[in-house]
Each structure stands twice: as structure tokens, then as C-alpha cells.
């Protein structure tokens, strides 16, 4: 369902004006990794605790700084909603879209939409994997159902 205008693929869900700020943003390492197809998230440089995306001092050991590194892209759905309110001028999709709160295997939590339009959302506890949408010039993480090589959904 991805449309193309010229050579730039437009996002299935949102207008490009919602593309995140990248330069100088607290989440710049995430977007930089995403551009290379990697999910890069922050950890405490001393004790390895998974940090929130804007956290800069570890609440476990009080070490300052964040070590951004690629993580296992697998996670499970903590919660999920289908958004029916399609804000005119911002949302391009014409049907309800999913937003999920995903628990990553490495300990982080990410609130993301799906990689592609998804009329039937995953259930709480379902296994998902992280891929990347392109919103304007920015690669943004998004979830996709995790399937086995036989096409069946994997257990978390």
C-alpha cells in the first residue's frame, strides 16, 4: 500500500511533517542506527541496565552517560490499541491503525505502530519483531508480526 511520489516512498500512516527531529535530538543514535537497519537503544555504561530513551543517569547505579548499542529486535506486545481517530492533515491512512507498547528482549519498552497497514492488531503477549518505516527522511522503528520459517506466528 506504499505509494510513491517521484522517487520518495511515502509512509503508509503519517504525513512527513511528523518526521522526528534527528540532528541534535536526544534520540539521534536511535535514528542513526535505524538508518542502517539496526535497532540501537541506550544502556547504562557501567551496569548494563536498559535506560529510558532520554535517561542520562542510571537509576540503578547512578553512573552518568548512555551506551547506545544494537539490540535483539525481538519483543512481545505489552499492550495494543487500534486508533480510530484519523487526524485530518496528519494521518494519511483511511482506516484504524495499531499502536503497540512493545517489551524488547533487552529490557526496553517502545511505543510503535506497525511496519505496514494492519487491519487486525496483534494480541497482548504476541511475539513481534522490529523493522523500520520511512517517514520523510527518517527511518523510524515499527513492529511486525514475528513468524517462523513456516509462516506461523512464533511464541514469545
Amino acid at each position: 500500500m506504499t505509494e510513491t511520489v517521484g522517487v520518495v516512498a511515502e509512509d503508509w500512516l503519517l504525513g512527513a511533517e511528523l518526521a522526528p527531529a534527528v540532528d541534535g535530538d536526544p534520540l539521534a543514535p536511535l535514528y542513526s542506527g535505524a538508518a542502517d537497519g539496526l535497532l540501537v537503544l541506550p544502556f547504562c555504561p557501567a551496569c548494563g541496565l536498559a535506560l529510558e530513551l532520554e535517561q542520562r543517569v542510571c537509576d540503578g547505579c547512578a553512573t552518568t552517560g548512555a551506551d547506545w548499542r544494537p539490540v535483539d529486535p525481538r519483543g512481545t506486545v505489552h499492550s495494543v490499541t487500534m486508533v480510530h481517530r484519523l487526524e485530518r492533515g496528519l494521518v494519511r491512512a483511511r482506516a484504524p491503525y495499531p499502536v503497540a507498547d512493545v517489551e524488547m528482549a533487552g529490557g526496553h519498552r517502545l511505543v510503535l505502530t506497525s511496519l505496514e497497514p494492519l487491519p487486525h492488531p496483534p494480541a497482548i503477549g504476541d511475539a513481534v519483531s522490529i523493522g523500520f518505516r520511512r517517514l520523510g527522511d527518517v527511518a523510524v522503528p515499527a513492529f511486525t508480526a514475528r513468524t517462523t520459517p513456516h509462516g506461523e506466528r512464533e511464541d514469545p
Binding site: 511528523l18 535530538d25 534520540l27 530513551l53 491503525y97 499502536v99 505502530t113 523510524v140 522503528p141
Partner: peptide, 15 residues
Amino acid sequence: NSGVRGLERASGVLG
């Protein structure tokens, strides 16, 4: 469109 809110908004969390 910055920080965590920027990522959430880019993921369709509007309002």
C-alpha cells in the same frame, strides 16, 4: 517532534 514524544508522534500517538 523531538525526544520520546517525537518518536511517539511519528508512530501515530497524536494527543
